[in-house]
Nucleic acid binder design. Structure first.
Length: 270
DNA sequence: ACCACGACCTGCACGC
DNA sequence: TGCGTGCAGGTCGTGG
């Protein structure tokens, strides 16, 4: 489900309900996520959520005693419910707030994660190896050029590599490469600086636009209020293999790259 | 040090 | 209608 825009839309949706709220109870219905939810998550009970932030596709709920790190995997979603209905299938985790509202995690495929981290965050192994945030100046041409220098693998795989830049998943990697006119199989080291300038711009643009539109809903993504995102209407290539290119009209090609569906225009992208 | 690939899961669309 | 197959928005850990 979520790439960076969907996670950010989720963050924006839940933040007003969570910031300053006291966690009255943590209910773990099924601990079997990507990593088992550790019982120490109960230490969050009684804590006040100070901030709700995002790093890459991780949501960070900060308290004085530690941070709850949430990841939505491929199929996870968070809702704030008040009142909360009876839990449904795949509702694995609830944070019951003293306001009566409930933050509920639903994740059919269970690739997501919920990790209670009571140590300093800079020692968190999932977080401390991550590359720059794409929507900040830390992601720029100089940094990208340095990261790609001498590498021969396909540019699309590099774009989706969290050490190079975080948050760009399969949808937006396809879209950004299309907008930048770069063939997804281009060898990293062979892309000119001018084209990398363009790529950095397009990555930022497509992510920012998707956030504005409430994210991309393909099947099951909804924001914290249960509403879908509308960016799917602005996708140029993702999910459109065989259909006409919005630029030149020729049929979009679809291949596999790193086991992921890769769609591009053979004419507009070189 | 790099990189490709399998693995983790459920649900859905499709073809027979 | 039912069954098998393949595919899906992520990313860690492995083995080469």
């Amino acid at each position: 489900m979520p790439e960076l825009p969907e996670v950010e839309v989720t963050r924006q949706g839940i933040s007003p309900h969570l910031t300053g709220a006291v966690v009255q109870q943590v209910v773990v219905r099924n601990p079997k996520l990507r990593w088992p939810i550790d019982p120490s998550i109960s230490h969050m009970e009684g804590q006040t959520i100070r901030t709700v932030t995002r790093r890459a596709k991780y949501l960070l709920l900060d308290t004085a005693a530690g941070t709850l790190i949430l990841h939505l995997g491929m199929s996870g979603s968070l809702r704030v419910l008040n009142p909360a209905p009876a839990p449904a299938k795949h509702d694995h985790l609830d944070l019951v707030l003293s306001s009566g509202a409930v933050l509920r995690l639903n994740d059919p495929r269970r690739f997501g994660a919920a990790i209670w981290w009571s140590l300093p965050l800079d020692g968190q192994p999932l977080l401390n190896q991550l590359g720059p945030e794409p929507l900040t100046d830390d992601f720029n041409v100089a940094q990208l050029q340095q990261a790609l220098k001498g590498k021969s693998r396909a540019i699309k795989l590099a774009l989706m590599d969290n050490k190079i830049v975080v948050g760009v998943g399969n949808i937006y990697a396809n879209e950004a490469l299309f907008s930048a006119g770069i063939h997804p199989k281009c060898s990293c080291g062979s892309v000119s600086k001018a084209r990398l300038v363009r790529l950095v711009e397009e990555v930022k643009l497509v992510l920012a636009r998707a956030i504005e539109q409430g994210g991309t809903t393909l099947k099951d993504f909804t924001n914290a209020d249960g509403k879908p995102g509308y960016f799917v209407q602005q996708l140029h290539v993702y999910g459109r293999g065989g259909e006409p290119c919005t630029g030149c009209g020729s049929a979009l090609q679809e291949i596999k790259l790193g086991q992921r569906a890769t769609v591009f225009c053979g004419k507009c992208q070189r």
